[in-house]
Amino acid sequence: MSVLELTDVHAGYGPYKALTGVTLSVQSGDAVALLGSNGVGKSTLVRVASGLVPTSQGQVCVLGRDIRGESVHALARRGVVHLPEGVGLFGDLSIEENLLLRLRRVPAPTRRRRLAEALEALGPLGSRRRTKARLLSGGQQRLVAVTGALAAQPTLLLADEPALGLSPAAADEVYAALERVRSTDTTLIIVETRLGRVENLCDRAVVLSSGRVAYDGPTSGAQDVLTGLIQRQPE
């Protein structure tokens, strides 16, 4: 079953066009690495998939349904969880409150169980459940965001540069959390600029260049394409 289907998608911000005709299909259970250098449209693509950025042309189908006219929250309720670039937490809310927001529509007994599991998965951070998110370090905040996303048990998880700006140890923790997704039915799309950590996590890579798909295939073949694109960039 196709979880995400993009056909000739054009999208952007005001006069700036970030995507200029992207066609892509992601099947259920896939783990896809979305790669490319800065400004090629990777973040815009996942924003289009979560409904944050509207398309100016083309069709986007999520879980078999055209998302035109569908709100972001309605898509989220259908199981699309988007971890945006950066922190992705509400700084003025506590760790527990941030997790609860993800579990808001779950029945109370299940919510309590999943909250307890999420807090446990956070390790030592779980004991600081009432601490405001903005008082945590960047890595800790990212870990809480990923744990919250996993607690929601998404059908499609869109993670936009989950290790951006983190120390290697913190990035390892975040990727360890994402590894747990691979054991579930969740379809995973991870945005990264380099192959690095995603090579082991994902079985398929999509490389974007100038708002279009430049490569779509096994992760093993992506590095050559990325290197070629970097070499072709003007000085």
């Binding site: 979560s50 944050l52 709100s71 972001v72 929250h73 989220a76 309720r77 969880v81 988007h82 945006p84 992705g88 509400f90 700084g91 003025d92 809310l93 409150e97 609860l100 927001l101 993800r102 808001r104 529509r105 929601a152």
Partner: peptide
């Protein structure tokens, strides 16, 4: 109260959690 306080900070991020901000 929880969605109210969250909406002040970022309505779009709240939308991503499935709440109509």
């Amino acid at each position: 109260g929880l969605p109210m306080r969250a909406a002040v900070e970022s309505p779009k991020l709240l939308e991503l959690t499935g709440v109509n901000s």
